[in-house]
Computed example of a mutant assay.
Amino acid sequence: MTDTIDETAATPPEPGTAEREYLDKQVGDFVRRRVTELQKNRNEPGARGSRAVALLARLRRAADTEPGADASIWDATFKGAPEAPTSGSILEPTKAEWAIHIALTTYAVHQQSGTDNMHEAGARFATAVRRLEQGRATGDGDRSPVRRRFDALVTSSTLQELAVHLRGIVKQMRSESIAFDYGLLAQELYRFQVPRSIDRVRRDWARDYYASLSRSTDKADGSTDTTKEN
């Protein structure tokens, strides 16, 4: 660490679209590697398994902290992490650091005491929310507590507010062993911090949620395409 900070570089410009998408992919890949390694190691016998379980516990305890505040998880959240410019002061955590921190600490909450793996490659977050929400509506036109929590998450004004709702949802998913891809979630958390990308993230969540709703409705109705070519 240096003793001086170049204040002239305190507010770098927002990255362009191509650079932003490259950075959020790096963030997603980093989180996916970390979570995959934790899932593999936590069930291993001996020291390796013990270290993974202990790290998951430390990550859970750090869920309410800022990136970098807990030195006991630095190896998981900072070591080898991609670098990304920040829209604020360089004294504040970067977008990449926030996305990685929230994704990894939320995974630790999701995985707590579970025997099934809570990271599933390719499974979309909003699709997992729909799986959790199915059958929980309180009446015709009413929204279930799960859907109300999801709506609150989607309309969050800050990433920290989003993280609180996210942890509430994954605690419910944990009880039903519903998993999703934490690398994809990390990418969405990164984009959520970029003003020009927030609506894209919300739109993706809406599409994933209602696409799964349409599929489940078709199965329940038994409606399949029986059209045949003559």
Rank of each mutant, 00 (worst) to 15 (best):
G68L: 00
G68H: 11
A69Y: 06
A69D: 15
D70N: 00
D70T: 01
D70W: 02
A71N: 03
A71W: 05
A71C: 02
A71Y: 05
S72H: 13
I73K: 11
I73H: 09
I73T: 09
W74S: 15
D75K: 15
D75N: 13
A76M: 02
A76P: 10
A76R: 03
T77M: 11
F78Q: 12
K79P: 08
G80C: 11
A81G: 10
A81T: 10
A81H: 08
E83S: 13
E83R: 14
A84Y: 01
A84C: 04
A84G: 13
A84W: 02
P85A: 00
P85W: 04
P85R: 01
S87E: 04
G88T: 10
G88D: 13
S89D: 10
I90E: 14
I90H: 14
L91V: 09
L91W: 04
L91I: 08
L91F: 14
L91S: 09
E92R: 08
E92A: 13
E92W: 09
P93V: 11
P93M: 01
T94I: 00
T94L: 03
K95Q: 11
K95D: 06
A96N: 13
E97A: 12
E97K: 13
W98F: 05
W98Q: 04
A99L: 11
I100V: 13
H101E: 05
I102G: 04
I102L: 07
A103I: 11
A103R: 12
L104I: 00
T106D: 08
Y107C: 05
Y107P: 12
Y107Q: 01
A108G: 04
A108Y: 02
A108R: 05
A108E: 07
V109T: 10
H110E: 00
H110K: 01
H110F: 00
Q111K: 02
Q111A: 07
Q111Y: 01
Q112T: 06
Q112R: 11
Q112P: 10
S113C: 01
S113M: 12
G114S: 07
G114Y: 08
T115W: 07
T115M: 03
D116F: 08
D116C: 01
D116P: 01
M118R: 02
M118E: 09
M118N: 04
M118A: 03
E120M: 15
E120Y: 11
A121K: 15
A121C: 09
A121R: 14
G122K: 15
G122C: 08
G122D: 12
A123C: 14
A123S: 12
A123D: 12
R124K: 15
R124S: 15
